[in-house]
Structure formats: structure tokens, C-alpha cells
């Protein structure tokens, strides 16, 4: 059976900055399929934005290549289908909002006859009132500028969207709007590459995420329901503190990864029903449970703690298992 070639193909991509030879990206290999919503996550300075710059053809790779739909990122037919929401909404401050959107409508080679209609539609899509269209860009708040960034992407009607921290500086309503737009674009079959710290919203719409750290892709994960719902269950107990073997036996019986401290344990659960079972079994073994709660972590944290994603995370847990919990 023939498989469809990757829509975005990144091969051996490296980016080195300046005379000090700072490796922002180090031998990145990545494939993104058509219609996929792909997340880039990782700590600050990991290289996520640089990778996006290379995918957009705005930064030149030091080595390696980026192909979109089999063509170079510098090909105008690729730019024709591309939209970009920058992290820094430093748009041309002297322009009026409507003019700015009209300008980008023209730059995106959209038909002039539909300009007015498309601009009004884009403003409505991002929740900006028509009156805002008459205002100068320099008079807009940070949240409004962020919405304007989304609007300029929408007027270009792209098939491939790059979003760099689209929820940065937005209020909760704005964040919900971004999520709704992502859901809509996913339904419309657009390919979306998103770089965001607010992954609690974004993770629900991403098909896959790449965890980037130190300019390298540490892992790429499909956001299966298991990973999306993976949570940390914290159980605190009183005196007498349970011995390691008791907790270990219960956890291993339920195939649960755990981390044991003197007065509490942290358990990595794939579903909440396992948490109930775990509690019941611990109490059956005379563990004096005082408190139990879910500690919701963002995707970055889960990636760091997931043994398949981060060997170091496993090492920490193994160290705990080997009796260091008495420290």
C-alpha cells in the first residue's frame, strides 16, 4: 500500500547563530502530514521559534533542508498557501486595522473584489468589533494585537498555518477563541504547526507534539487519549509511614510508575479509575491515607516525566525506588 508523502519534510536541519557558533537547532528530522495539527513544545530557548523560522523560510538553515509539499520553502507556491501568526505582534503601528488587513489580503494574492467582505469576516472570526477596524494599530491592546495577528492569517486563507505563541498576552476568552479556531481549521483540513506554552488548551486539538530541548527533538508523541489524560496522583499518608515494599507492590500490581517520599507518593496514572483502585488497595494494606489529589501537569512536564520520553526522568524514579526515599 502506498503511503502519502509527508506534507512538511525536515531533514538534518541545523541552525547555527553568530560568531560564537550557538547551535539553536541541531540535526532536526521531522515529518508533518497534511491536515495534521502539530505542536512544538519545550522550555524557553529550546529552539522552537527558530525551527518555525526555518519552516517559514525566514531563517536560512546552516545545514539540512525543509520541503513543503515537495517544494522548497522559498518557492512562491509554498508561500501562497502559508499563513503565519508571529509571537511579537509588532505590526505596522501607523496603519489602520482595516488597511492592515486589506494590505495582507492583497499580499496573499486574494481577489480584490472580495477584500471588504474577507476583512470584515476575519475581524468577526477573531472577535474584534467592526469599529476596531477603524482604529490605528498603535492604539490596540496586546490582546487585540494578538487577535489582529490571527485575523491577518485568516484573510490570506492559508492551507498551512504557522502559529508562534498565539495565546501569548490573551485573556481567557482569547485563549478559548484560539482553541476554537484550531478546531475549525482542523475540521477544514488545514495543516497547523503551533508553538505554545499554553498547551492545556492546545493539547486537546494537536494530533502530535514534538518535545524540543537544546535544539534537538527529544521525542515526538501522538496525543492519544492516554497521554492527554495522563495525570499525577499524589497520595499523602500519616504515621506509621508505609514501607517501600508495600507501596511498590500495589503500584506494580496496577502497572503504575511512582515516586515515593517519606510522607507521600506520586503516581503516574493513565486514567482516574486506576486512582480509585490504587487508593482502595493502599488502604487495604493499612496505609494511613490522609489526602489524595490529582496534580495536573502540562504536556512539557508529562514529557519530562514520561519514561519513554525522558530517560533522566526514569533515572530519578529508579533512584527513589532504590531506597533514596529515606533521605
Amino acid at each position: 500500500m502506498l503511503t502519502e508523502p509527508a506534507f512538511i519534510k525536515v531533514e538534518n536541519l541545523s541552525k547555527i547563530y553568530g560568531l560564537r557558533k550557538f547551535h539553536a537547532l541541531d540535526n532536526i528530522n521531522l515529518q508533518i502530514n497534511k491536515g495534521e495539527v502539530f505542536g512544538l513544545i519545550g522550555p524557553n530557548g529550546a529552539g522552537k521559534t527558530t525551527l518555525m523560522g526555518c519552516l517559514l523560510g525566514l531563517l536560512k538553515p546552516s545545514t539540512g533542508s525543509v520541503l513543503i509539499n515537495g517544494k522548497s520553502v522559498y518557492d512562491m507556491s509554498v508561500k501562497d498557501i502559508t499563513g503565519f501568526v508571529p509571537e511579537r505582534p509588532h505590526f505596522d503601528a501607523w496603519m489602520i486595522v482595516e488597511n492592515f488587513l486589506h494590505y495582507h489580503h492583497m499580499l496573499a494574492n486574494q481577489p480584490e473584489s472580495k477584500a471588504k467582505e474577507d476583512v470584515a469576516e476575519a475581524l468577526a472570526d477573531v472577535g474584534l468589533q467592526p469599529e476596531v477596524g477603524k482604529r490605528l494599530i498603535r492604539k490596540l491592546s496586546r490582546g487585540m494585537l494578538q487577535r489582529l495577528g490571527l485575523a491577518q492569517l485568516i484573510v490570506g486563507k492559508p492551507d498551512l498555518c504557522f502559529l508562534d505563541e498565539p495565546t501569548s498576552g490573551m485573556d481567557p476568552l482569547g485563549m478559548a477563541l484560539v482553541k476554537d479556531l484550531l478546531v475549525r481549521w482542523k475540521k477544514e483540513g488545514k495543516t497547523v504547526v503551533i508553538n505554545s506554552h499554553h498547551l492545556d488548551q492546545v493539547e486537546k486539538v494537536c494530533d502530535r507534539v514534538a518535545f524540543i530541548e537544546g535544539g534537538k527533538i527529544r521525542s515526538i508523541e501522538e496525543l492519544t487519549p492516554t497521554l492527554q489524560t495522563k495525570q499525577i496522583f499524589v497520595v499523602r499518608w500519616g504515621h506509621p509511614f508505609p514501607i517501600y515494599e508495600t507501596v511498590s507492590e500495589v503500584a506494580q500490581n496496577n502497572m503504575i510508575e511512582f515516586e515515593l517520599m517519606e510522607d507521600h507518593g506520586r503516581f503516574w496514572l493513565s486514567s482516574r479509575s486506576i486512582g480509585t483502585k490504587l487508593l482502595q488497595e493502599l488502604m487495604a494494606k493499612d496505609v494511613q491515607v490522609e489526602e489524595a489529589m490529582y496534580e495536573r501537569k502540562d504536556l512539557v512536564e508529562l514529557f519530562k516525566k514520561d519514561p519513554s520520553a525522558d530517560k533522566a526522568g526514569s533515572d530519578v524514579r529508579n533512584r527513589r525506588k532504590n531506597g533514596d526515599n529515606a533521605e
Binding site: 525566514l58 499563513g83 503565519f84 508571529p86 509588532h90 501607523w94 499580499l107 496573499a108
Partner: peptide, 17 residues
């Protein structure tokens, strides 16, 4: 300059040589 300048990163993400 934010007042006078252009957002060239955004501009060159468009189909513009």
C-alpha cells in the same frame, strides 16, 4: 521603529520576492 517600520518577517512570509 514600531511607528515607521514594517514587519518584514510577516511581509516575507507572504508570496513576495
Amino acid at each position: 521603529s514600531l511607528d515607521d517600520g514594517e514587519y518584514l518577517a510577516l511581509l516575507f512570509s507572504r508570496p513576495l520576492h
